[in-house]
């Protein structure tokens, strides 16, 4: 997601892959956690300064830093 400001809370997005800017290590961890293409991602909350997001994927809640969210291609 290039522009984080476009993200709306409690709205679901479809994951369509990862950007090249995302390091392999992080991409690997996200894949381990079930961030596969076509999966539904819901943004549930963000922290005080808006740098950390709370997302729901595959029935699990995860918190992710904005730099990781930027590496997700969402539709």
């Amino acid at each position: 997601m290039d522009k984080l400001s476009k993200i709306k809370m409690n709205k679901s997005y479809l994951l369509n892959g990862f950007t090249n800017s995302l390091p392999l290590k992080l991409k690997r961890r996200l894949l381990d956690l079930g961030f596969t293409r076509g999966e539904k991602v819901v943004f549930c909350n963000k922290s005080l300064l808006g740098k950390t997001y709370l997302v729901q994927i595959r029935g699990v809640m995860l918190s992710l830093r904005d730099q990781i969210v930027k590496g997700l291609i969402l539709e």
């Binding site: 290590k25 992080l26 809640m61 918190s63 830093r65």
Partner: peptide, 9 residues
């Protein structure tokens, strides 16, 4: 090196 904060709730 990486600001890789991923944490399961």
């Amino acid at each position: 090196k990486q600001q890789s904060f991923i944490l399961e709730f």
